[in-house]
Design a protein around this nucleic acid. Sequence first.
RNA 1: GCCGGGAUGGCGGAACUGGUAGACGCGCCGGAUUCAAAAUCCGGUUUCCGAGAGGAAGUGGGGGUUCGAUUCCCCCUCCCGGCACCA
Length: 816
Amino acid sequence: MSTPYKPEVVEQEAQQYWEDARSFEVDEDPNKEKFYCLTMFPYPSGKLHMGHVRVFTISDVIARYQRMQGKHVLQPMGWDAFGMPAENAAIKHGVPPAEWTYKNIAEMRGQLDRLGYAYDWSREVTTCRPEYYRWEQWLFTKMFEKGLVYRKNSVVNWDPVDQTVLANEQVIDGRGWRSDALVERREIPQWFMKTTAYADELLDELDRMPGWPDSVKTMQRNWIGRSEGVELSFDVKGEEEPLTVYTTRPDTLLGVTYMAVAAEHPLATKAAEINPEIAAFIEECVQTDAAEATLETMEKKGMPLGISAIHPLTGDEVPLWVANFVLMSYGTGAVMAVPGHDERDWEFAKKHGVPIKQVIAPADGSDIDIQEQVFVEKGVLVNSGKYDGMDYDTAFNAIADHFEETGRGRRTVNYRLRDWGVSRQRYWGAPIPIIYCDDCGAVPVPEDDLPVVLPEDVTVTGTGSPLKDMPEFVNVTCPKCGKDARRETDTFDTFVESSWYFARYACPDSDKAMLDERAAYWTPVDQYTGGVEHAILHLLYSRFFQRVMRDEGLTDVSEPFTNLLTQGMVLKDGAKMSKNKGNVVDPQELIERYGADTVRLFMMFAAPPEQSLEWSDEGVQGSYRFLKRFWTAVADHAEAGAVEALQKDALDDGQKALRRKTHQTIAKISDDLGRRSSFNTAVAASMELINAVNKFDDASGQGRAVEREALESVVLMMSPMTPHICHALWSALGHETALVDERWPTFDESALELDMIELVVQVNGKLRGRVSVPADASNDAIEELALGDDNVQRFVEDKPVRKVIVVPGRLVNVVV
RNA sequence: GCCGGGAUGGCGGAACUGGUAGACGCGCCGGAUUCAAAAUCCGGUUUCCGAGAGGAAGUGGGGGUUCGAUUCCCCCUCCCGGCACCA
């Protein structure tokens, strides 16, 4: 009887070995092929949750697999340490955010160590450290010099009771989470980074990124939302300034029956001065949060302003409305409405009794009733005077030409993408390095004065940033003129830190520059793994930041992440694990009970990585059972003593069959891990091979040799997923060198050959029988054998055979 | 509302390029071992009909293409992620 599987012992020993041997610390070796394997770094919330364990394990499997391919693998880890939860904890428990954060990092670091990830901890990055954020402050000042950042008014959620800005998350059903007061939209000056300056490049490069999932690329394309349209101006009766709108459908221009402006638009403000009803309506419009989802789902409301625009082609008067679905911060704050050919305009017109005019007819000449059903497709113009009969492109150009010739409009490219607002009215973030001087305006902090260090010893109250109450922080002298000035108290959006940390891992200790030559070796990231919830914002900001760093001469790399794997969430009872729902499973407990390998194995086995994973306690036990069977199978074999050399040509049929299974499995798992990232099927294939070994009962010399080959293969191939148990089993099999430095097994093509193959026989597509045929049989011979099958004959009977389809190696379909 | 994804046995999932639907695991049922239990091992397990051989149905719903559809096309339902201040 072999020694029982004791995960706590096995795992401790393996981890000790890796630590002593510094197995995962890597240098920049130009003679080796590098592989940079990265996971989206965690926010140090306090404890590791199952979602973390899942991503980190996926990434670790990839890192260890690539290492076995002979690559020089870097897998670092760090902390996305700024953010709201630290402030919330500070309010709740009176602990400064910094203290809370550092404590959490220490706690989570211990948990990570217990899971046996192949991290190079010498490169740890913590974003709330001044030596980290000084460089994004520095880059911000460079961007300032280049005009890539600017300040403008922008909408925030304002809590009128707590007198503070709220995050969208802190607005619940339109009310402040702490005060319960109705939230208002309010405009305040904020700093922006010009992401739109890179819109075309960010869009075009997506076509040359084969390593990213199509779904993510599509989402980014749609998010950037490049459109070609026309900007045109409508005169407004009694106003000097014309009203400018942008449209991608100038072909529908003759169908404009009203126009709408935002509640904050000057025309609305002016109308409100003389009309209290409009004033009340505008008041109502402002009482909502700033999230786009809210805006798009709320009831579309509007009021006529009592003024008219002049249709630029017909000279007809078009009524102007104020509407809650038009936002001042999008485009010009005004839209032209074509209810006949736009869904939202149609519904609004129906509700408010605005006329609906058909100006586009289906290209196929079919009849439509525009009063009953909106028609949004492109077609042929009607009721449009001299443009009648034109198709979309012709009409687009004719109308665009007309406006350009008359100077009343122009062709223009528009993006849905907006510039990135990086200001946050919060304490726990990197200070924006700007000083306000009455004479010089906004002045960037000079390089020598960086970093602007965030004071860490503070009391957080929940009503505004404590920085505002710290004269020693706020009161400074102007770097330009030396007069008294004030420091910016807003901090950066935490997405700023996460937009470049991946590059900093290459040179975390560089104090002379943001990046140094080591970044040239390691970047771009070869494999990036993280939650699909980051498909747009984080990934787009990182792609933007990488280009800003490139154009600053810090790197030659444009795209930060060559291959991307977006993993699904961990669910329990069909819902995301959360404290509120009380369905949280603590990884720590499971690791203590079953060991890290069991938890890692279950994570890999239970679902494909991109899909959500349903938690199952029984499933974890199943994984544990498998590891015990695996352990016993290898240990029993090893204890039976030495094994003679395998002689390929001296095997009997049973031995050949097991050897075939071994090499089929190597081929399959190599493909699963190397090409498909299909970890669940890789585990299943390993289980099948172990099952086959357990059924294999042949203690002869060659029998044991074949068995050893199978077991060694499984130990090697399971090692990325369950590295500790494999480390122990590898040495149990008599190896002097450690598994962590072994190479991936290769498969022997000749072992896969078969003399006879089984084909499925269908009659009219339905399975009716099976035939065994020689591997090299001709189609005619296969056909004859198939038709000779008794059950096949029953279904063919005397019906004429119309066709026989032979799919080589798979099936025969007889069509009667 | 818009963008992206998903739906397959009692459950998690497999079927990769249009070719045997249900691999592997869980659960359950039966058996072995045990004084008993746990653990372990062996066998069975989509549903329905049938003693069996075998047959019929079946991949969220409805239609289509095809010799053949979980896979491709059209329409729909429900669930999940994102929507720019959660990270």
